[in-house]
């Protein structure tokens, strides 16, 4: 029988560790993806994910609205990321490799408006993605966070506003500025 996150959460709040473990299992991949994108370091990301779930576990009784578990969890993960980022004061040893979703397909070439996909074209597309990654990590933290949540976590604008505890208009303006900055960087480094 499939149990909803909310029912698992209620059981976990009552002290059922198995329910919490099940919740953690369901969310770990998403949270890892989020954290890994945020700091770009695999080892640090594993630590951050661990501390995120441990903090969530310890503070279950402080969760006011069980319906907003995901926003609450993302908020914890984001805080952990920020703490880790401040500690290192930079994105160190970034291990994120940049690639297209399918190297063998014409995704890169096609999206660049190229009909004949040659190795050179693919390489050029890959370089472009590398530059994009570079630009992404140069973005101000608040813009990077919004892009990360919207683009790679699939959160709606309203959910992001809930996670960050800022108005919807702020979420949109950060996203807009982030996209513009990325675009500008790509053009300048072309």
């Amino acid at each position: 029988m499939h149990r909803t996150d909310e029912s698992l959460l209620l059981e976990a709040i009552r002290g059922d560790d198995c329910s919490f473990s099940e919740l953690a299992r369901r969310w770990e991949k998403k949270i890892f993806g989020f954290v890994f994108r945020y700091n770009g370091n695999r080892e640090d990301s594993q630590d951050v994910v661990q501390s995120t779930f441990i903090k969530a576990y310890k503070n279950l009784d402080k969760l006011q609205d069980t319906g907003s578990f995901s926003a609450w969890l993302y908020r914890i993960a984001l805080n952990e990321c920020r703490i880790g980022f401040r500690k290192s004061n930079r994105i160190r040893d970034r291990e994120v490799s940049f690639g297209s979703r399918d190297e063998s397909s014409s995704v890169t070439g096609a999206d660049l408006g190229v009909d004949n996909v040659t190795p050179e074209r693919i390489l050029s597309g890959r370089e472009e993605l590398n530059r994009l990654g570079e630009a992404f990590y140069r973005l101000p933290g608040e813009q990077r966070e919004v892009i990360l949540m919207r683009e790679y976590q699939g959160l709606r604008f309203r959910e992001i506003s809930e996670v960050l505890d800022v108005p919807l208009s702020t979420v949109k303006s950060r996203l807009y500025l982030g996209l513009k900055t990325l675009r500008k960087f790509m053009e300048e480094t072309q």
């Binding site: 994120v96 490799s97 990654g133």
Partner: peptide, 8 residues
């Protein structure tokens, strides 16, 4: 482009 960028 952002959609194409995958962390391997």
């Amino acid at each position: 482009m952002l959609g194409d960028w995958v962390a391997e």
